[in-house]
Simulated scan of single mutants.
Amino acid sequence: MISAPPPRPRDTTFGRSTPDAMQLSPDIPTVELTSLLGGGREAVILHNGERYRLRVTANDKLILTK
């Protein structure tokens, strides 16, 4: 009989809204979302000549699409 491997522990830090949820290095720039969106719910980000759309969903999640 083949047994299944034990389940991997879940990453419980992802999705938390607390400021310390992500342990980031102090040299990584931090940008407030409001400075990108300007009070709106979406923004276009240019990267290497390509346009990406960053938007906030109705459930207050972020989606980045090309």
Rank of each mutant, 00 (worst) to 15 (best):
L62C: 06
L24G: 03
T18C: 08
F14N: 09
Y52L: 12
M22A: 11
I2M: 05
P19C: 02
D20H: 10
P7N: 00
A21P: 04
M1P: 04
P5D: 10
T57F: 04
T13G: 04
L64M: 10
R53N: 08
R51C: 07
R10V: 15
I45C: 04
G49T: 11
V56D: 01
T18W: 10
I28L: 13
Y52W: 15
P29D: 13
A4N: 09
K66P: 15
R16G: 09
R51Y: 02
K61N: 07
P9L: 01
P26L: 02
L64I: 15
R41V: 06
S25I: 01
K61Q: 14
G39F: 09
T30C: 08
S35V: 13
E32Q: 13
L37Q: 10
V44K: 14
L64R: 00
E32M: 12
S35G: 02
T12D: 07
S35R: 08
D11L: 06
D27S: 13
T30S: 09
E32I: 05
P9M: 00
N59A: 14
R53M: 07
A4T: 13
T18N: 07
T57M: 05
I2L: 06
S25T: 10
D20M: 07
L33M: 06
P26V: 04
E32H: 10
R10M: 11
L36R: 02
V31R: 00
L54G: 01
D60T: 07
R51V: 04
P6K: 05
R55S: 12
G40D: 11
P5L: 11
